[in-house]
Computed example of a mutant assay.
Amino acid sequence: MDGFYAYTYGSAAWLGLQALPLIVMPKMIITMLATDMHMTTDIEVYLSRSLGFALVLVALIVMFFTGSVPLSSSMGQPVSLEDSDPKAPYAVPIVTVTTLFHALSMIYCYMRWVNYRQMGYVLGAVGYGAMACVGLWCLIFGTSAKRLSKRTGADKRTAGFPFRNTMAYDKRKDRKMG
């Protein structure tokens, strides 16, 4: 499994993990995160469950529109991140939007932790931060096509600075053998 699939499955799992307690036991979550002890109102329960359902929806959108879950009966073709690929045309935009969502949520959770010092916000900030980092890694390294040399099969994007690759293809060595 490459980094792209790890991000999509991890992002969906992280959002689902947050959605489950919001849907199943919203009163407990409200009580844990409230600054003062009060009876939960019906609107708080409604908004908690609505947020849980929205998180499930975002997780499903990530899974289906990035091509991680195939929408056709053919399982043989891997998902490509090329813009011209008809199997997953929304893969890169969805990864971009969800990475931005995870980064903004991490900042929000961290600011809430700074103000209220509740452990739930730290856990949220760590989880969102990890997903934002993996998403950024996928956007930087996972969306560009490989440039492999036809002759050697090595990736042309690599450089020898600051360490030289002594095991790489050497023209002089190849001439001596041939």
Rank of each mutant, 00 (worst) to 15 (best):
Y116A: 01
L55W: 03
G76P: 00
D42E: 14
G124V: 01
F65S: 10
A12T: 08
G129Y: 04
F65G: 06
S149L: 00
I23T: 10
L104I: 11
L20Q: 07
G10V: 01
K173N: 03
R151D: 14
T143M: 15
A34G: 10
W14P: 03
N115C: 05
I94H: 03
V97Y: 08
W113R: 07
Y9Q: 11
V122N: 07
F65N: 10
D170Y: 02
L136H: 10
G3C: 05
E44I: 02
L139G: 12
V134A: 15
I30F: 02
G124K: 04
G135M: 00
A125R: 08
A132K: 06
L15M: 10
M111D: 09
N115H: 11
S84V: 07
C138L: 03
R147H: 14
Y7K: 04
I43L: 07
L22S: 07
L55R: 09
Y108Q: 10
A12Y: 06
P26V: 03
K150V: 01
W14H: 11
A6S: 12
P89L: 05
F101R: 06
V45Y: 02
P89I: 04
A13K: 09
L139Q: 13
G76A: 14
S74N: 15
L33N: 14
Y46P: 02
M131P: 08
G76L: 09
A34K: 10
L136P: 07
M32L: 11
L60P: 02
L81Q: 13
P89K: 04
V79I: 15
K173Q: 05
A13C: 12
T8K: 05
L81K: 13
T31L: 05
D2E: 12
K171T: 09
C109D: 15
K87H: 12
Q118L: 11
M39F: 11
T96A: 09
G153Q: 01
K146H: 14
R49S: 01
G142M: 02
L51M: 04
L100E: 01
L104H: 07
G52N: 02
K150M: 06
W14G: 07
Q18T: 12
P93F: 00
F141R: 06
G129K: 05
S11D: 07
M75I: 13
A19D: 09
L148K: 15
R151F: 12
T166Y: 15
Y9E: 06
V62K: 06
T143Y: 06
F161Q: 03
K171I: 06
I61K: 04
I140G: 04
S11F: 08
F65P: 05
T158C: 05
G135A: 05
Y121A: 02
T41K: 08
S11G: 15
K87W: 06
Q18Y: 04
M75V: 14
N165Y: 06
Q18K: 11
F163L: 13
Y9I: 15
Y108D: 09
W14F: 15
T96P: 02
L55N: 05
L81T: 14
M131E: 09
G52P: 05
S105P: 00
D155I: 01
S105W: 04
S144E: 15
Y121Q: 00
G16F: 00
A159E: 14
R151Q: 14
V69W: 13
F141S: 00
T158N: 02
S105V: 01
V134F: 12
V92W: 03
A54K: 09
M167K: 13
S84L: 03
M177W: 07
F53H: 10
P162I: 00
